[in-house]
Design a protein around this nucleic acid. Structure first.
Lengths: 359, 359
DNA sequence: TCGGAATATCGAATCGATTCGATAGAGCGA
DNA sequence: TCGCTCTATCGAATCGATTCGATATTCCGA
């Protein structure tokens, strides 16, 4: 099958190339890497020998041992990769990270913090780690990484000593949305929230969410809402998706209508996908948006599932967050001391919010 | 800042642990890895010493040099990561790959074959590579990897010697869709095709597509259509997305209507996303689906953008393809000789196709 | 023509673990 | 009590490159 006979089992090494070229290993290394004074003639000889032997370049494993660097940056996402990549915001962040690490010549190693026998943060050869989305077991992960002496960047996690954090104004942005609703006269406002912890079941938002929430993002956004509407209630969705939003929206709008006869006049959805789902739920119940129900989202995704609606939301710079995280990781590897960064979102008032109907 | 004073600069090594425990390095290694006979007392001593020194386990770089394995499997996607992950099929495949490689204890290193200074297939420390989606520079990549002696698995690429391929019945599946349309009486059928090469511009499908297409998948699906409808025409979309499908659909339906007065009675879209776009385009032009226009897709995505439509399509086992690729890569690393696999799609007849109207 | 600087090359140590072969005891049956 | 088989442990080689310091060579001005 293979063109080469028996040599196929053993790739040539730099030493072999050096031997064929009639120079020492050190000289061959210099000739290849270009670092150090090597005569033109010697370089040519070495390159020719490499060509003759089919030498594919220095073994990255040996290089990384010697240099103490692997050129790989780990990126830890919560749960299954499938879930992680369904969310357009995660995707945008990932893209930003990839752009920066790619520019710096580093590769991205995908890791999930779901259990299993897989290669994980304690045994992967990497130079730095980026934690995306605040997982439940974050402290644990950080402890392991700290022991390994690994630089850590976290996107939207609680501040932790030794961890560089890339944050968003989740609380303030939500408060701005809420004030917008208040100015429109809304008094009965409910939330459709992202999961507050690791459990993936839809449920009514518990009273003690502030103490129970392990998701930093969710909790901060809830706090922002509370700043304007103390005592609000709502539903916790299973994940950030249109379908989950629709289900939560149905529970919220049908349930409230059934029990007390009055349903909220505005819904704060914690992501645009959820908001779209809520709008669909409302429409399927014959509730007109925004005339009978105002809906706001969060994120600023640009997808064409919105139909003719122009969603009122806050636009977060997701890709920039990713870029910042990637750049910070690269700088940390290089020995620099980058600073934590806080990003701000921008309020976008669309056509899904309107003054509370007077009826 | 840091709890430890000066030791922070230098992580402890296994040798240091061994010294503290009063045993040789080899014994310490055995104690850690659990391979080989070590007395209970010794193991305890070594573990205690490791604990005392804050030893975080064997350095993966040294391990991979010695063992000749890095525990990392590279996955090469075409173009930017962002693009790659927008497509639900890529995502499903990725998820399948991740599931299998994860189970085997391997990590996934994301690589794109877009140029740039980044770590790439010629310098990344990995044990095998999975090529996803047939890129233009596939041959080149394979040549580099072959020189490195790297096992290669390709999902939907032309057969290449030394490359294990995971394939799909693109041609036959499309032919089945086409026959379905023929049975319904359609004679004027057009295609909305995936890109046929690296260029990302929408264009009319060229006559000589068979010679020009560098995308294996696209070409095979076109061939399947030709098997039933020789001489068909159509439009090449810019990518697999609803928006691209809508744009291509508009070009096809408006253009044809304007020039010859008769437009196709059926459209074969090469992906479900494209099909949804085509349906939207038709609806925006006042063309009813399926009464005036039958539309078929490809893939079998399950997304709720379909509205009330039940798309006629072929359902491909994307996640299974990914799993197969992952498993094959793992087996190749382990020295096994897995076989190439061909997957088949299943025809699903929905409500977007109907008999050609007699008018 | 000679000393000193610049240049090209080499030898050897090093990165941190794994693993092969050797060795020293311990346990056991004859 | 002798010899044999295990078991636990160790020393040394090895994986494949990089890099520091030393050495030989050349070139230059004085």
């Amino acid at each position: 099958m293979d063109g080469e006979a028996s040599g196929a089992t053993q790739r040539p090494t730099l030493a072999a190339v050096a031997a064929l070229a009639g120079v020492s290993g050190s000289t061959a290394s210099l000739a290849f890497s270009g670092a150090g004074p090597v005569s033109h003639a010697t370089r040519t000889k070495v390159l020719a020998a490499a060509e003759a032997l089919g030498y594919a370049g220095p073994d990255p494993r040996a290089q990384s041992l010697r240099r103490g660097r692997s050129g790989i940056i780990g990126i830890v996402v919560e749960d299954a990769l499938q879930d992680a990549f369904r969310d357009p915001m995660s995707l945008a962040m990932l893209d930003g990270v990839a752009a920066e690490t790619g520019n710096a010549g580093a590769g991205l190693l995908l890791l999930s913090d779901a259990g299993g026998p897989q290669i994980d943060i304690r045994s992967a050869p990497m130079d730095a780690v980026i934690l995306v989305g605040c997982s439940t077991r974050l402290d644990e992960s950080v402890a392991v990484l700290r022991q390994r002496g690994m630089p850590v960047v976290a996107i939207e996690a609680d501040d932790m000593p030794g961890v560089l954090s890339i944050s968003l104004d989740n609380r303030d942005a939500t408060a701005r949305l809420a004030r917008h609703l208040r100015e429109l006269g809304h008094e009965s406002v409910s939330v459709v929230s992202l999961p507050i912890d690791g459990s993936k079941v839809q449920a009514e938002l518990p009273q003690d969410w502030d103490g129970r929430a392990t998701s930093h993002t969710t909790r901060d956004r809830l706090r922002g809402l509370r700043d304007v509407y103390p005592g609000f209630g709502g539903v916790v969705a299973t994940r950030s998706s249109i379908e989950a939003g629709r289900a939560a929206g149905l529970a919220l709008l049908e349930g409230a209508a059934a029990t007390s006869g009055k349903r909220p006049t505005a819904v704060v959805a914690q992501s645009d996908l959820l908001a779209i789902g809520v709008i669909r739920a409302a429409e399927s119940l014959g509730i007109r948006v925004p005339e009978q129900l105002s809906v706001v989202g969060f994120d600023g995704v640009q997808i064409d599932e919105l139909g003719e609606h122009d969603l009122t939301t806050v636009i977060q710079p997701a890709q920039d967050k990713g870029r910042a995280a990637g750049r910070a990781a690269v700088e940390l590897v290089a020995g620099g001391t980058p600073q934590s960064m806080a990003f701000t979102s921008e309020l976008h008032i669309g056509s899904t919010t309107a003054a509370r109907s007077q009826q």
